[in-house]
Write a protein that binds this DNA or RNA. Sequence first.
DNA 1: AATGAAGGCAACCGCAGAAGG
DNA 2: GCCTTCTGCGGTTGCCTTCAT
Length: 361
Amino acid sequence: MGRSPCCDESGLKKGPWTPEEDEKLLHYIQKNGHGSWRTLPRLAGLNRCGKSCRLRWTNYLRPDIKRGKFSQEEEQTILHLHSILGNKWSAIATHLPGRTDNEIKNFWNTHLKKRLIQMGFDPMTHRPRTDFFAALPQLIALATLRDQLAATACGGGGGGDTAAAAAAQIMQGAGGGGGGGGGADVAIQAAKMQYLQCLLQSAASTIASAGSGGGGGGAMSAHDADAALAAAAAAAATCSSSPAGSSVPITPTAVGHSGGGQTQTTPCAFSEAPVITSDDVEANLRLLGCGGGGADAFACHGGSLPPLADLSDLTTTTMTNPLDWCSATASASSCGGGGGASSPFPWPEFFHDDPFITDFL
DNA sequence: AATGAAGGCAACCGCAGAAGG
DNA sequence: GCCTTCTGCGGTTGCCTTCAT
C-alpha cells in the first residue's frame, strides 16, 4: 500500500473547523458538488486536505443530517443491527436516515457498549461474558456473602464452612430441636442457604465454562465492587432462567439482567462465534418465553436496554421487581427449592419481603 | 470556588478495496 | 498484471464540557 496520506502534505490545517471554513465548504459543495475531494480544498479556498473536507461534510455539514439524541427506536435498531452486522457502522448507518456512521459509532462506544458491559454482556458477541476476570467480581461478592452467611448461621462462630455446610447445620439444628428459633425460621434459613449455594455453583460453572479462553485480564475497576451485588442478582437470574450449561447465547436485549461491571473488553470464550443470527435470537426468545417470533421481535421490553439508572436500581429496593424491565425471565424454575412459577421473581415468594434478599438486590 | 475525573463528541490516522491508466 | 490514485471505513485520539469532590 505505498501511498502517501493526503494529510501528510505540510502546511495544511488540522483540528477543529472554524465557522468560516464551514461556510466555504458548504457554499462550494452546494454550488459545485464535491467532485474530487482531493482537488476540492484548493478550489474552495480551504487550507485543508480533501479527506478532512470529506469528513467534515459527511459528518457535520451535510444538510440531511439529523442531530440530537438517539431515539428509542434508533437505539433499538442499532442494537439489533450490531448484533447481526458487528462494527459495520456504515452499514448500520444506512438503516438510520440522517445519522452518520461516526455518530453511530460514537453512540455505541459511549453508551450502548458500556451498557452491555455493565450488564455483563460481551459487546462484540452480545453474549454473556464468561471470561474469568469478568466473573471475578461476582465470585468475590459471593464469597464474601457466603462467609457472612456462614458466620450468621453459626451464631457468629466458625465462618470457614461452606454455605451448604451451614445449611446442613441449620437443618440439623431444626431436626434435633436444638435451641433457638422456631422450626419454620430455621427451614427458611436453610432454603436461603440452598439458594445461595445455587448462586455460588452458578458462578463457578460460569467460570469453569470459560476455561482457559479468558486470556488477557484486566485490573478490576473500582466500579466492579459496586456492581458485584448486581452481579450476584444476575447470577440468581441466570440460575433460574437459564438451564445449566446451556450453550444457547443469550441476547442481551432479551435478558439484560446479568451483572458484571467489567469495564474492559477482553476476548471471551465465545469469541469464535461473534455474530448472533436471527435464529439465535429466536431461539433465545423461545428459551426465555418471550412472545412473538422473528428477529424483529427479539427485543422484548421494547427491545432497548434499560437506562443505566435502571441498572443501578438493581441494587436498591426502590424497584419492586428488578427483572421488571424485561419480561423475558418468564418462568422461574427455582434452582434452590420450590418456587412459584407464576412469580415474576426467580426465587420463592417467601424470600420477597426478606430484608436479606432485598439487600441482596 | 477550585480542581480533578469522567463523559461526549469531533476529528485524525491508517488500512483496504475499487477504479483507472 | 502492476502501479497509482481516490474513496470509504473503522479504530483511536484529544479537546471540551459536565459532574463530583
